[in-house]
Amino acid sequence: MSDSSRVRPGSTLEIRDLHVAVDDKEILRGVNLTVRAGETHAIMGPNGSGKSTLAYAIAGHPKYTVTGGQVLLDGVDLLELSVDERARAGLFLAMQYPVEVPGVSVSNFLRSAVTAVRGEAPKLREFAKDLKSGMDALSIDAAFAQRNLNEGFSGGEKKRHEILQLELLKPKIAVLDETDSGLDVDALRVVSEGINRFRSTGETGVLLITHYTRILRYVKPDFVHVFAGGRIVEQGGPELADKLEAEGYEAYVKASA
């Protein structure tokens, strides 16, 4: 890793009483959560509970209106920053449905992103080397770099590409929005290994949003939060995931309704 010598103090993401609306409809109703470096938090919940809204609101998607609360990354309120400033501050969102961008090649996009996040253009040879080893580790074909961004990618290719970006950009906090959805077991294993490489330094925090417990067998969480009705309704350790696996979300859905 090219910048492993850089000292990165343990970062902390603090979500405080976050309220978010879409088209005047309140979706998040007071979310509180702290993610520290070295921790992996799983957010689990039924469809429509607001999990993805949490992810996109933190990243700053214009569709979501924050109506209250704070999101602090090492004390800086991300909500005061533009989308790109949040990313450069060390936030990363792996998207559930990465959008196709015609005419923008993967390699050009990745170089632009790495340049923006590091604040300087990477040396061409070094970047090519990082890119190649990153792609190899995720079993991504070399020809992929010349393709247009997400255009014609299979579901599995899109998710691997998201994790490739995660490994190249080395954020302080990664929010992974249903990265496991639509993956077969082989792809899930490859993607999970990428996430585990990313968190192996112990200097980064991970917020893993998922509907299913399957990915948690590969990416072991330290904390599990149950999301329902736009807020966290229960918290626990990894054993909570096992309980959800056995009992489902019904009890929480009823309680939050």
């Binding site: 700053g60 998607h61 790109d84 996040v117 970006q165």
Partner: peptide
């Protein structure tokens, strides 16, 4: 499109 690129740190 713009959101995706900005979410990777690329200025508007």
């Amino acid at each position: 499109h713009i959101f995706y690129l900005q979410a990777r740190g690329i200025p508007f």
